[in-house]
Structure formats: C-alpha cells, structure tokens
Design a protein around this nucleic acid. Structure first.
Length: 469
RNA sequence: GGUCGGAUGGCCGAGAGGCGAGGCAAGGGACUGCAAAUCCCUCUACACGGGUUCAAAUCCCGUUCCGACCUCCA
C-alpha cells in the first residue's frame, strides 16, 4: 500500500503527507467572495479540493474541512449600489448561487462554512494580539495595518522580495498613514454609508485577509495541515494570511495546495467572457455529474483549457462509463460495490494524479465491456466494482443519491419503461417476421423522441440519449 | 522591472533520463437484417538551437511564443 504524497507550494516540492495529529486532517480552503454568480473556475477549486477531501477520508482520516464565505468586501458593496440592494442581500444571493452550484456538482458541504461577518470578534482579538506584539499599528484614522518590514518570513510563499514589488497604486502617498506603502490593511475605517462594526480603533470593516487567519484559527487551531485555494491567492492573500498568523505566534498551515485555473483561449477566466461560463449556464448543456467529471479530469495543478467541444467530448466519455455501470446492474441485478484498485490508489496517492487514475478506469471499462459480450459475470462484477470505487472518489458515482433525478419520479420512470417495452415488443415481433420496414419505423420513431434502441444478446434495451437534464 | 507557470500527435490530456499513459476524433475489421452499442487493429508526438549522456520529451545553457501574479481574483 502506497502512502499519500502531496505538493507543497511553500517548498515547491512533493513530499509525504504526515498529519499533525494521527488520523486527523484539518483543511482550510479559501472559498468564494460572494459578489457574482459562480463560474467554472470557482467550482473547479471546489471540485479539486473535494476530491482531496474524499481521498483523505477514504484513506482513513477524520477530515475537518473549513471553507469560508467572504460576505463583506469592496466588490460586494459596489454590487449593492449597482443592484440597488442592501449589501447583505447581495452577499446572500450569491452565496446561495454558490451553494447551489456546489450541490449540483456534488461537492460535499464543508464541515463548517464560516462567514467573515460572523467573526468580527475573532478578528478584533487577532488585531489586538498583533498590535501588542508590535506587528500591527493603528495610526488613528480607523485603519489597522500590518507592518510587513518587520516580518522576516514575509513573501516566502510567493518567493518575492519586498523591494521588487511594484509600489501599491491604491493610495496616494500623501494622505496615507502607512509606515510603508506595502503595509496592508487588516481593518478599514468605515466610510460614510459603509457597513461597519465597532472596534477599539473606531467603526470599520474587515480587510480582505484578516478573516481567513481569524477563522482558520477559530476552527482549526494555531496550526493545521493543509491550506488551499486558487493559484491567484498566493499573493497577496495567502502571503498576508501567513504574515498575520505568524506574527500572532501561530504556526499556521503546514502545507499549501493551489489549484490552477480554468482558462479560455489561453487566458484566465474573467468577467470579460460574459456569462457563458457560469455554472448555471453550462448546466443547461451537460448534467452536473458530467461537468464535474470534466473539471476533475485534469490534474489540479494543471491549467484546464476550456472549450465547449472538450466539455461535450468529456461528457460523452463519461456516459460511456456510466452506460457500462447501468448495463452491469441490468445483468447482475445489483449495484456494484465500490472497490479501489491498486493502480487507482497509487495514482491518487501520487499528488492526486487523477489523469493517471482515469487510465485505470479505461482499462477496467474495456475489460468490463468485453465481459458483457462474453457473458462473464465475475469479470463484469469486478470491473463494475472497481469503476464505481474510482467514481466515488472523484465524486462522479452515478448511483450517488446526490445525482438522483429530481424531476422524474419513480412512477413516471416505470410507466415510461412499460410504454417503451410495449413498442419494443412490437418491433421484436416485426423483426421475427423479417418486416424490417416496420421494425425500423418503430426504432426511428423512438429515436425522434430521443430514445436510443440497442439490440443486445439479452434483447433490446433503451436509453434516453438526448443531451441535457 | 521582479516572481512563477506553460508549449506533447487532428483535438483533449498524463509522464519527467531508457521500456513510446489514457481519452476523443479518423480509417480499417469483427458482430448486426441494417443500425446502435461493444470489441480488435491502425495513425505515434513532445516549441526552436546548442550541450551533457551509452541513452534526452524528460537534465543543463540559450532563444522564441503564450499565460499568471506584483495589495482585496478560484
């Protein structure tokens, strides 16, 4: 049995994963800033880390998975003006959109999902510690800053030098109270009309970075195993989290994992691409399980170049796997029992090498399909078990109730099945009397309704072939 | 300017010194009344130029192109 190795952005190397506490893993994932509907880049992060979580759980760890919601932020405030809604209504609206997207993709709910606005107390406490230790200062204008010059370890995650950074453009130096232009705001004084919370330094609202340090500390303690997020968070967000937390005396994250982007036309996804790559839009052309399969199929550290063609192709490949499992149930009369193959396990243990793991599924699929032709139920069963075991880890198990069709009830399905079987009996009769015109008419008629007929050794079977949900 | 990635066959996408992942598409074959599904076979690549080595897609040097971050992006 191999053991898990994971990459670490801090060391830029892959190393054996050893938890701080035997049998336990604490993960903090930077979740969404709820200021717009989720696009597939956002949920790729969710899917990638969900696979990590499932794999750790399967490996026997008790995983505490914290994924925050940033529900107060400049963009949310702007959006509130734009949409003529209170800022908290904007945050809630998009938080729900994210929750729905995660659910559609079978991303397991976090152990806890803390909101920034619910942790102002912890943030104030953290700032007090930082000020006491001399790492932060409140210049009297209501802001609180972290003094980055004092931190020798600052910028080690992104491997930059403080003096090489381009000077921040956010402040006109004249009015700034910062000791150094690169000092960053832990807390921002309230401007007229802004939401605010009372603090010892005056009313204000959280800076972007402070929340994560405060919440990670609250739920995972001074030190925890894995901190994750998108590549673009390395600097400044994660760098600043480290600065705040270490200056407060916490050891903080032992390992950093960052997922790469979904790109379109070689570029990182952005709002300029419009709404077409929102999860909500894409789910009109493929099912959630298919979108998840696509997003999870590339290695988490590799860029995934999005195209509608690639997505459609990926969905086709997935249906092929799903179709085998469906047929295995028809033949064996029972759902497969998830089993992990050695090849799959080894691949996953190698820094979650999902693409390699998928190759093992392909092999099992071929063996399983051949076994159907040969009527070898032992091999059908073992192949189906192995495939289901793999799909379960990838969060793409078609038997998972999370993917159960919400629209068609069981009664309806049974009625449809009976109806189609009547037609198929007619067709079989026609074929037996070699009236192929009549049999083809039935098949074409069903095809026009989106129902595909396949003649198998066990007789005809049908499936709904139309795209969509 | 600083930091960090990437370039693999028609397409997607792994690998990271030797035994040429896998998928999709395409062509051929088997099966079929014809299909569909399935299986078998074929096509075999690592941006460019040097170098190291018995051996380089993989290591080193250089070049080109693409991308990301550099204070509120997953």
């Amino acid at each position: 049995m191999s053991s898990l190795s994971l990459y670490d952005t801090l060391t830029r190397t892959t190393s054996s994963f050893v938890p701080l506490k035997k049998g336990e893993v604490g993960i903090y994932l930077c979740g969404a800033t709820v200021q717009a509907p989720p696009h597939i880049g956002h949920v790729r992060s969710g899917v990638n880390f969900d696979i990590l979580r499932r794999w750790l759980t399967k490996s026997g760890y008790n995983v505490t998975f914290i994924r925050n919601v940033t529900d107060i932020d400049d963009k949310i405030l702007h959006k509130a003006v734009h949409e003529n809604m209170p800022w908290w209504a904007v945050a809630m609206k998009y938080e729900r959109a994210f929750t729905e997207a995660y659910a559609a993709l079978n991303v397991l709910p976090p152990t806890y999902e803390p909101r920034a606005t619910g942790h102002v107390t912890q943030m104030i406490e953290l700032m007090q510690v930082l000020i006491e230790k001399g790492a932060a200062y409140a210049p009297g204008n209501g802001d609180v800053y972290l003094e980055v010059r004092k931190l020798s370890s600052y910028l080690t995650l992104s491997r930059q030098k403080l003096d090489d950074l381009q000077p921040a453009a956010d402040v006109d130096a004249a009015s700034s109270k910062k000791k150094d232009p690169r000092d960053f705001a832990l807390w921002k004084a309230a401007k007229p009309g802004d939401p605010s919370w009372p603090t010892p330094w005056g009313p204000g609202r959280p800076g972007w970075h402070l929340e994560c340090s405060a919440m990670a500390h609250q739920y995972l303690g001074e030190s925890f195993d894995i901190h994750g997020g998108g590549l673009d968070l390395i600097f400044p967000h994660h760098e600043n989290e480290i600065a705040q937390s270490e200056a407060a005396g916490y050891a903080f994250a032992k390992r950093w994992l960052h997922n790469a982007w979904v790109t379109a036309s070689g570029e990182k996804m952005s709002k300029s691409l419009g709404n077409s790559l929102q999860v909500h839009e894409l789910l009109k052309s493929v099912r959630g399980i298919e979108l998840r399969w696509y997003l999870g199929s590339a290695h988490y550290r590799s860029m995934l170049e999005f195209s509608h063609e690639a997505l459609a192709e990926s969905a086709t490949a997935f249906r092929r796997i799903e179709s085998f499992l469906t047929r295995s149930v028809e033949i064996l009369g029972a759902q497969p029992t998830p089993v992990l193959s050695q090849a799959f396990t080894d691949a996953m243990n190698d820094d979650l090498a999902v693409p390699t793991a998928l190759a093992s599924i392909s092999e099992a699929l071929r063996a399983g399909n051949s076994a159907i032709t040969a009527g070898d139920s032992a091999v059908i069963e073992s192949s189906a078990n192995e495939i289901r075991g793999a799909l379960e880890i990838l969060g793409c198990d078609p038997f998972d109730p999370a993917f159960a069709s919400a629209s068609a009830g069981e009664d309806l399905t049974a009625a449809l099945d009976g109806t189609i079987k009547l037609a198929l009996e007619q067709r079989t009769a026609a074929r037996e009397r070699k009236d192929f015109a009549a049999s083809d008419q039935i098949r074409d008629g069903l095809a026009a309704l989106g129902i595909t007929i396949e003649d198998t050794a066990q007789g005809p079977r049908w499936s709904i072939s139309r795209d969509g949900k």
